Computed example of a mutant assay.
Amino acid sequence: MKTSLKTRLIRFLQEELAIPYDSIAIALRHEEQTPSLLPMVLWQYGLVTLEQLDKIFDWLETA
């Protein structure tokens, strides 16, 4: 995932879905093992709901 896209995704997660940065930081640490899968890592660790995951994927399609 390109850095600018990742930055925009993080901003979306914080501003639109109100996901705390601490939760995002946890996912970012684990994302290094599975690049470009930040949304799935957030979901895997129970940091976003399935509904939020759908919104993230919808956002990524238009980003």
Rank of each mutant, 00 (worst) to 15 (best):
V48P: 05
A25R: 12
L47D: 05
S23V: 04
W43K: 14
M40N: 12
E16W: 07
T34W: 05
F12D: 05
M40E: 15
T3D: 09
T49G: 11
W43N: 09
T7P: 00
K55G: 00
E32A: 15
T3V: 14
T62V: 14
P39L: 06
Q14T: 11
S36A: 13
T3K: 12
L5T: 06
R11K: 15
L47W: 03
L60V: 01
R11P: 00
W43R: 14
K55R: 14
Q14I: 08
I24N: 00
T62I: 07
E16L: 11
E51P: 02
A63R: 00
M40R: 10
T62P: 00
P39I: 04
T49K: 04
W59V: 04
A27F: 10
L9A: 04
L38H: 05
K55C: 02
L5S: 10
S36C: 07
R11N: 06
I26R: 10
L13C: 09
Q44S: 12
T49Y: 01
Q14C: 03
I56M: 08
H30P: 00
T49D: 03
D54W: 07
A18S: 14
G46N: 08
S36V: 03
K55S: 05
W43P: 00
F57V: 07
L9V: 05
E15R: 13
D22K: 14
R8T: 08
L42P: 14
A18M: 11
M40L: 14
S4C: 00
P39F: 06
T7Y: 07
L37F: 09
R8G: 06
S36H: 04
Y45V: 02
S4P: 00
L17G: 04
I24H: 01
I56F: 03
D58S: 10
L37R: 15
F57R: 06
Y45H: 15
S4E: 12
V41C: 08
I24M: 01
W59S: 01
S4H: 05
L9Q: 10
S23T: 04
Q33K: 14
E15Y: 03
E16K: 15
D58G: 03
Y45C: 02
L9D: 05
A18L: 10
K2L: 11
K2Y: 10
F12N: 02
